[in-house]
Design a protein around this nucleic acid. Structure first.
Length: 333
DNA sequence: AAAGGTCCCAACCGCTCGATT
DNA sequence: AAATCGAGCGGTTGGGACCTT
């Protein structure tokens, strides 16, 4: 089906906005709200298309936009969220009040990405470019993110479910004294239930459809699922199914070939879990060491290793700041 | 001081999705 | 069910600002 252009481009202005145009747009939105972006330019008397007006407003003129350089805290947040979400700039921006997706995207592409590359890390996977398990190197970033999300979500839910039945001593304590693991799990669930999680679930559904389509295609990249020791099924897109991959949630190896092909996954917002065939026994989850469970949350390598040590931020409840080191290594921007 | 190169970011483009007709 | 619309998202780029030689 044809998609009509967003506007009739003839006679419409393009390029940088003038202060006069800005003023007209701001004044109009202040008094009338933006309403329909498509009709706004005409109503406001601007020779711009609605899309251009929307972008100008959301990326530049909105009163709540925060200007100025990114703080270290913001940088940390961006890196952490990018590790979880990939290039979902809008979702990342929603966690940084006053910052726009465009701004974050630019900042990532011009500063943070280079920084990771300089450190020998793949900016997409946040892993060392030349190393990593087969699963890490073979699975698409989004597939990896899906597995991470699903694993972490299930773990957090299992823990909360257990706590709701067995009031442990820790649950009687104040929140300030709850364990870091609890805080991290809760943190994860909050994100999962936020618009970030929603955004992720939506895109996961999309990916699932693509996986199914690719599987039905005679010439397609093989996508295989592998069940690990703790019962988590991992979807791995590979040219040739690996003999063995390491499960991110339990660090146990999982043999290839015996997995039943499943739809990709991630989309665990609800019933989707069953379609993913991801079954995790809560008691098995308890076997996970605290450290392991935290690592799986963000697919962290062993914190003891030099790999991704910089990635320890608020999510890890670590007091170690990696940024001074980072900043020393790279010139200011 | 001037020329050439690089960096940075505002804006555009094309695509997808959900809602509506 | 198909077509269309409106909105939003992520990738890309043009050109000004800044830096280096």
């Amino acid at each position: 089906m044809g998609r009509a252009p967003c506007c009739d481009k003839q006679g419409l202005k393009k390029g940088p906005w003038t202060p006069e145009e800005d003023e007209i747009l701001v004044e109009y939105i202040k008094t009338n709200g933006h309403g329909s972006w498509r009709s706004l330019p005409k109503l406001a008397g601007l020779l711009r298309c609605g899309k251009s007006c929307r972008l100008r407003w959301t990326n530049y003129l909105r009163p709540d936009i925060k200007r100025g350089p990114f703080t270290l805290e913001e940088e940390k947040t961006i890196i952490q969220l990018h590790g979880m979400l990939g290039n979902r700039w809008a979702a990342i921006a929603s966690q940084l009040p006053g910052r726009t997706d465009n701004e974050i995207k630019n900042f990532w592409n011009t500063h943070l990405k280079k920084r990771l590359v300089c450190m020998g890390l793949d900016p997409q996977t946040h892993c060392k470019s030349s190393t990593g398990s087969i699963a890490k190197s073979s699975a698409s970033p989004s597939t990896r993110h899906m597995a991470q999300w699903e694993s972490a979500r299930l773990e957090a839910e299992a823990r909360l479910s257990k706590e709701s039945f067995v009031p442990s001593s820790s649950s009687l304590l104040s929140s300030s004294s709850s364990s870091p693991k609890n805080q991290d799990s809760d943190y994860f669930l909050r994100i999962w239930n936020s618009n970030i999680g929603e955004s992720f679930r939506r895109s996961s559904k999309r990916e699932e459809a693509m996986v199914v389509a690719s599987q039905s295609s005679p010439i397609s990249q093989t996508s295989t699922s592998i069940k690990c020791g703790s019962g988590v099924t991992i979807e791995v897109a590979v040219a040739d199914p690996p003999e063995e991959v390491e499960c991110k949630s339990c660090s146990r190896s999982a043999g290839g070939g015996d997995g039943v092909v499943v739809g990709g996954g991630g989309g665990g917002s609800s019933e989707a879990s069953s379609s993913n065939e991801v079954e995790v026994a809560a008691d098995e989850m308890e076997d996970l060491s605290e450290e392991t469970s935290l690592r799986l949350l963000l697919d962290f390598p062993d914190p003891g290793s030099d790999e991704m040590g910089f990635f320890q931020g608020q999510m890890m409840m670590s007091n170690i700041s990696l940024f001074p080191t980072l900043l020393n290594e790279t010139s200011s921007y």
